[in-house]
């Protein structure tokens, strides 16, 4: 139903998430770090990005910034996942604009609904 790009460095996390999103019928691609994420985004535009901004190597928030500053990508829906409760980072992410901000562990039902919401909007006819 939707083309989703997951940006996450934990391979196990990617494994369980892909299995889950697959079962919902989505087409899932993965980037294991910020650089890979930007490379993929330069080649195609997904319907949604699931972005981990607490990757130890960093760069998560920068991916969000880059997306918002990019003429082609700026309106791309981004769902943030994070393992920490850092208020400052949360503030900045929200300022940049996010579809949702979740703290791990994610509630899979909440995520499922949010994705459905985003897909519905994407498929809705353009306002004249």
């Amino acid at each position: 139903m939707a083309k989703i790009l997951i940006v996450e460095d934990e391979k196990d996390m990617v494994q369980v998430m892909m299995e889950r999103l697959d079962s919902y019928g989505h087409d899932v691609d993965v980037a294991f770090d910020a650089l890979q994420a930007m490379m993929k985004l330069s080649k195609y535009k997904p319907d949604l990005v699931l972005l981990d901004i607490s990757m130890p190597a960093g760069g998560g928030l920068q991916v969000l910034r880059n997306i918002r500053m990019n003429i082609r990508l700026f309106a791309l829906p981004v769902i943030i996942m994070t393992g920490s409760q850092d208020e400052k980072i949360k503030e900045e992410a929200k300022k940049l604009g996010v579809a949702a901000y979740y703290i791990k562990p994610l509630d899979i039902n909440v995520l499922k609904e949010k994705i459905a919401e985003i897909v519905k909007e994407k498929d809705a006819p353009e306002e004249a």
Partner: peptide, 25 residues
Amino acid sequence: STVSHELRTPLSIIKEGISLIMDEV
């Protein structure tokens, strides 16, 4: 914040792994 991340990450993976099986995916 580091401890938070280090603990929550494996926790979510385990949780989702169990969920996947229980939901018969």
